[in-house]
């Protein structure tokens, strides 16, 4: 089992992007733009907002269903990175104790609300980003960014991140294995050796970068990674973007959930 399969399973993410559904077939640029707008809309909500965020789950859920992406896979990835969001929000309930609402007799402090809001925003944004990659593939996203006019330097960095992350990780694993084999159960002479290993890994990376650069120059590299035009914006792509934008606009600027709540309350009153 390689490092990749064990820890990140990007291979699985790659394979998901080979599928052939109408979400996969959309132009990558349309998906990149839609996802970016989605992210911006979600994080633009004020910090105590919880209720108005709920309808936004429709976007990832629809993409997931139509794109035939397994829910468990996405959920698992979201949970893997969730500690970041939890640590950002965990102190809110302690710091912000002013009561803002009373729900069936239990007072709810502003801290808990903002914590919940952070978690919701986090889940929405991460799952949308994962779905973008699962339905478009990482290189597809890179090509789309380039064609949307992102600077070539930035896009080539992304390409190399994707290509060499595992080469680097596996190199590190090999070094650690070699150390463990000769440290006979002791923790490998501790931090001192570990620090040196990191230094050597860095030097090796610099060497490798130089070799890669030579290989690129040998094949005529002139500062920009060229790409073939694979796709063209079609009516379906424009329709998808229009639908996303109107969905985002309606749920951002009109308080739909509150409205529905009022109507329901009115029915039962």
């Amino acid at each position: 089992m390689t490092f990749d399969e064990k820890y990140f399973d990007i291979g699985r993410l790659d394979r998901l992007s080979y599928r052939d559904t109408c979400v996969h077939n959309l132009d990558p640029r349309a998906k990149v733009i839609a996802t970016m707008l989605f992210l911006i809309t979600v994080i633009s909500f004020p910090k105590y907002e919880v209720v108005a965020l709920a309808p936004f789950f429709l976007f990832p859920v629809l993409l997931m269903t139509i794109g035939e992406i397994p829910v468990r896979f996405i959920l698992k990835k979201v949970i893997v990175v969730s500690p970041f969001a939890i640590f950002i929000g965990i102190f809110n309930p302690l710091l912000d104790t002013g009561t803002v609402a009373v729900i069936s007799g239990v007072p709810v402090s502003g801290g808990w609300l903002s914590f919940l809001s952070i978690i919701l925003k986090f889940t929405l944004t991460i799952s949308a980003a994962l779905l973008l990659i699962a339905t478009t593939s990482f290189p597809g996203v890179c090509h789309a960014l380039r064609r949307l006019g992102f600077p070539p330097l930035f896009v080539s960095q992304l390409f190399f991140l994707y290509r060499y992350l595992f080469v680097l990780m596996e190199e590190a694993m090999r070094m650690i294995r070699a150390r463990d084999m000769r440290s006979f159960g002791t923790p490998g002479a501790g931090i001192k050796v570990f620090v040196r290993l990191i230094g050597i890994l860095f030097l090796r990376t610099v060497d490798r970068a130089e070799r890669i650069y030579y290989a690129m120059l040998s094949r005529g590299f002139q500062g920009d990674i060229p790409s073939l035009k694979r796709s063209r914006m079609a009516a379906a792509d424009l329709a998808f973007m229009a639908a996303t934008i109107s969905f985002l606009g309606v749920f951002r600027f009109f308080r739909i959930t509150e409205g529905i709540g009022r109507v329901v309350q009115g029915l039962f009153a």
Binding site: F138, P139, Y162, A215, P226, S227
Partner: peptide, 24 residues
Amino acid sequence: FQNPDDQLFMPTVFDDVAFGPLNL
């Protein structure tokens, strides 16, 4: 070059082989 990992820097095989011709 000796190490194919240094030579194949693009995300897919197709992109990698196309890299040179596109640069031409």
